[in-house]
Design a protein around this nucleic acid. Structure first.
Ligand SMILES: [Mn+2]
Ligand SMILES: [Mn+2]
Ligand SMILES: [Mn+2]
Ligand SMILES: [Mn+2]
Lengths: 220, 220
DNA sequence: AATATTTTTTAGTCAAGACTAAAAATTTAT
DNA sequence: ATAAATTTTTAGTCTTGACTAAAAAATATT
């Protein structure tokens, strides 16, 4: 069955919301991310349920069916592969690619996306460190910590971000915090939980707890 | 002003029809290429005229305004650049790219299309030999002959096709007729105007007039 | 337990872009 | 110059995906 852009966007957003909770997803949560109103979401949820892509009961929230998740994963796969393309091949910065990928993720061609995957050398993660499902829809297992949870004087590598708004990414770039950077927390201030971090062995810089919370790392 | 997919498709098709005639374009001609009905076209022509992209008077046919042509050329540019990408970088055959480019041509990002242009080394023509407008909307001048108009025993090179339906392109491929092939007409049969052509100096093969008419060449 | 607040759904509208059937205008043929 | 055929437009309808305002259900507060 063919899926419209709107349907794909909804499924992807329900998927993303499901990643961080086991509970059913609320109408309002979906409305916020789709940038629509709750009433519009209710309408769409009924349609998606009708097509067998979500389980939905009035007032009970929504959850993807296996088939719905499969579609969502394929959209996520396309989104993230196109992001890799935009950064690695087109030379965009990591804060510039989201909107374009938001469009490209709806291009309908299995053949194209698999050739693109190959062209990019089967990347495991996108420019924000998010995992890319393979063509079977299997996500590589990545277990990252938040920089905010790291003890002092432990070496680690920046592996991803937990938020990909342009302003956040631009801030990181200004601080020379990019994927692969070697980090070490030098000091944790109990007052506001801000930290001072050395990036690639240079002089430590200050980072708010809010920022540290959204930086994903791997201990080396 | 933002342009919808539908509007872009209409403008592109009106542009394509205008290339081969100086007359105004008829409602039916547009309907045929957009795969819609004449009534739907009439509706859309009114909207396009409203936006200042076409000149349209009831029963008089339609013609692009300068602004409309600018939009059409940008869609054509995107379509053809994506086709080059699909063939040169993704490894598709020339008969497989049209539908995908039909979608990709609507991706909205000046920055992306200009980076893509550079990535592809500023190609002058697409995989079917059609000229690619530059970012200012200027088309390179290409003056090709039809193979059907060529005299016997004149060497030439296949530069493009005047039709890009998949079946036609697949036929050419089977005959080893691809862009850049060296051709020489060995014989013209007055009966049905079919010709016998040597391709890259190999044994001549027979080609119908219909096929020869749609092969574009340059004399060497 | 009753009330207030928040969330979600329903009801009614709207715009875009398609359709069919019928009417009107234009073009072609006699 | 009429009549016939063709093309184009109008009128009315449908689907998708949005909206607002109001009603209903669920949740939180006293
Ligand atoms: Mn999207
Ligand atoms: Mn990403
Ligand atoms: Mn298109
Ligand atoms: Mn082409």
């Amino acid at each position: 069955m063919a899926t419209s852009f709107a349907e794909e966007n909804y499924l992807k957003i329900i998927y993303r919301l499901s990643e961080s909770t086991l509970e059913d997803i609320s109408t309002n949560a979906v409305a916020e991310l789709t940038q629509t109103k709750a009433a519009s979401v209710t309408d769409m949820l009924r349609k998606l349920a009708e097509k067998g892509w979500v389980n939905y009961q009035k007032y009970q929230g929504v959850r993807l069916t296996d088939e719905g998740e499969k579609i969502a994963l394929s959209v996520v796969r396309k989104h993230r592969l196109w992001e890799v393309f935009l950064v690695d091949k087109m030379g965009f910065n990591w804060d510039e690619v989201h909107e374009i990928a938001e469009q490209l993720e709806h291009i309908e061609s299995e053949a194209l996306i698999n050739k693109l995957d190959e062209f990019l050398d089967f990347p495991k993660t996108d420019p924000h460190g998010d995992p890319i499902p393979n063509k079977e829809g299997i996500l590589p297992e990545l277990s990252y910590m938040h920089l905010s949870d790291l003890k002092e004087n432990k070496a680690c590598v920046l592996m991803g971000v937990a938020k990909d708004s342009a302003v956040f990414l631009q801030l990181l770039t200004r601080l020379h915090l990019s994927l692969g950077a070697k980090l070490m927390v030098k000091e944790i201030n109990p007052f506001d939980r801000s930290i001072s971090v050395s990036i690639n062995d240079s002089e430590p810089v200050f980072i708010s707890h809010e920022v540290a919370k959204n930086i994903l790392i791997k201990i080396v």
